[in-house]
């Protein structure tokens, strides 16, 4: 395997889980999320010689979110109870409840609002970086993020308490 290919495999192995999860947060659908992450990695690999020494993760992330924003007509509609993993920790019910709550409140946002929320709060990017990756102004990121948070508050931006802690 060529050196560049080996580097890409290492990169993709490390990055794919977070890319898939980011896409899941934007679509609410695991299959669409995997498709989107795959598309982002295909384009990243196609440009690998150019970006391998730069911010490859940022490139893949940017391709991913812009690809998903462009396919805006896909609603969030997957509910997590249909595909539960087999392994089990005691907090599965909490995780399921959290995922359901998260998908419900994210489902109130537009595609671009979801993209800003995911980049800001899942990837923890500063606003200027979000603006670069979405190719919009910092002002747009601020206003979109602010509007998104307002919608999330209206939708109930307070996660369900873990079971057993409720009084």
């Amino acid at each position: 395997m060529a050196r560049g290919d080996a580097e890409f495999v290492e990169f993709a192995t490390a990055a794919s889980a977070r890319l898939v999860h980011a896409a899941f947060l934007m679509t609410g659908n695991h299959h669409q999320a995997e498709d989107a992450a795959q598309t982002a990695l295909v384009r990243t690999y196609a440009s690998w010689s150019r970006i391998r020494n730069g911010d490859a993760y940022g490139y893949a992330r940017s391709v991913l979110v812009n690809h998903l924003v462009d396919t805006w007509r896909r609603p969030i509609r997957e509910y997590p109870t249909e595909d539960l993993p087999e392994q089990r920790r005691g907090d599965v019910a909490d995780e399921v409840a959290t995922r359901r709550w998260l998908l419900t409140i994210l489902g109130t946002l537009t595609a671009r609002e979801r993209a800003v929320v995911v980049l800001r709060y899942y990837f923890d990017l500063p606003e200027a970086q979000v603006a670069r990756e979405l190719d919009v102004s910092v002002g747009t990121v601020k206003s979109t993020g602010s509007r998104a948070l307002e919608k999330l508050r209206t939708a109930g931006l307070t996660a369900p308490e873990p079971q057993g802690t409720r009084r």
Partner: peptide
């Protein structure tokens, strides 16, 4: 906002199969 961050991370799925890297590179 911290609650939102925590929830986004808590719902990561570590048990999913990886992507088809060979297919990704072929298409790339």
């Amino acid at each position: 906002v911290d609650e939102l961050r925590r929830a986004m991370r808590a719902t990561e799925r570590a048990d999913r199969d990886g992507l088809d890297l060979a297919g990704i590179m072929r298409e790339g």
